[in-house]
Design a protein around this nucleic acid. Structure first.
Lengths: 159, 159
DNA sequence: TAAGTTGGTCAATGTGGTTGTCCATATAGT
DNA sequence: ACTATATGGACAACCACATTGACCAACTTA
C-alpha cells in the first residue's frame, strides 16, 4: 500500500551527470598517474583527440576546440614542453607547422583508451551490461550526435 | 541471426555524461535569460546553493566550494555588483560579513528550480518516466552521496 | 591580559583565455 | 605574370579568475 516515490527535484539529474563525469575522469587520471603520465590533465585528452593521428595545425586545432588560434598555440607550446606533441614544418606549405603527437603522447592516448574501457568494465560489473548499455542509449538520445562538439574551454566561466 | 552489437568504446560514456550536463545547463540558462536573468552564469547556481538560505561568510563559502577565501571574496563582489547577493555585518561578531541572497538572487534560485523541474519533465516526455528514474538511480549508484561535493572551480585546468 | 586564531582585505603573481597587429607565404583574379 | 586577397603563425597588450603571502582587526582561550 505504499504510494509511488515522488520525483526527485530536477536539479539532481544534471548534478549527478557532472558528478559521474568527474568520477570517471578522476579515476582515469589517477590510473594515468600510476602508469607514468602524472602530467596529463583532463583537458589534454580532448586536445590529443582533436590533434588526431595525422596531426593538425594550431589554427585548425583552435577551430576544433572552439578557441582562438592564439590560445591553441599556447596549448601546443605547453604540451610541447611536456613532451606530448612536436611541431614540424609542412614541406608542402611553408606557412604551416604541423602539430603531431610524440610517441609519449600516443602512449598516453592509448593508455587512456584502455583505462576508459576498463572503467566501463567496472560499471558493467557493478550495474550489469544491460544498465550500462541502457545508460549509453539514453544519453545518446538526449545529446548531440557529434561527440567532439563540446567546446569545453571557458564554457564554465564565473562571471 | 544478427550478432549482438559490440560494446561502445569506453570514452563515449564520460563524454555523453558531460554533454548531457551541458545540454541541460545551456537550456537552463537560455530560459533564465528569457525570464530576466541574463547575467546568471553556470557557476552561479552552485554558489547560490553554497550560500544557502541563511547566508554564510566568504571564508565558509570558499571552504564549501573548494577555493581560497580570496577567490570566494571576489566571487561575492561580482555577485554583489550583479545584485544577486548583499553583505551585512554580523552583530554578534564584528569581523564577519554575512553574505545573503537578495530578493533577486532568491528569485533566480527559485526560477532555476522550476526550470530544472520543467527540463526533467521534457526528458520524461521524450524517454518515459521509467527511463529517467532508471537513469537517476544508476547515476546515484555510481556517484558520491553528497550532491554538493563537486569542487567545480578550477577542476578542469589545462596545465 | 597576553597569546593564538579567525575573518576580511590588499598586493603580487600565474595561467589561460581574448583581441589587435604584423609578417611571410599561398592562392585567386585579371 | 602581377596584384589583391586569404591564410598560418607569432608577438604584444589586456582581461578574468584563480593562487599565495602579508597584514590588521576582532574574537577566543589559557
Amino acid at each position: 500500500m505504499s504510494s509511488a516515490p515522488p520525483d526527485p527535484p530536477g536539479f539532481e539529474l544534471p548534478l549527478r551527470l557532472l558528478l559521474a563525469f568527474q568520477v570517471i575522469i578522476d579515476e582515469l587520471h589517477a590510473e594515468l598517474a600510476r602508469e607514468g603520465h602524472a602530467a596529463m590533465r583532463p583537458m589534454h585528452g580532448f586536445v590529443f583527440q582533436a590533434i588526431g593521428p595525422d596531426g593538425t595545425t594550431a589554427v585548425e586545432l583552435g577551430r576544433r576546440l572552439g578557441v582562438s588560434k592564439q590560445a591553441a598555440g599556447k596549448m601546443v607550446e605547453s604540451l610541447e614542453r611536456a613532451g606530448y606533441v612536436e611541431r614540424t614544418s609542412d614541406p608542402a606549405d611553408a606557412r604551416r607547422k604541423i602539430v603531431r603527437l610524440t610517441a609519449h603522447g600516443v602512449d598516453a592516448l592509448a593508455r587512456s583508451a584502455r583505462i576508459f574501457d576498463r572503467i566501463r568494465g567496472d560499471w558493467v560489473r557493478r550495474l550489469g551490461s544491460e544498465r550500462v548499455r541502457g545508460l549509453e542509449e539514453t544519453l545518446r538520445a538526449m545529446t548531440p550526435q557529434d561527440l567532439w562538439r563540446l567546446d569545453v574551454p571557458g564554457w564554465f566561466g564565473t562571471s
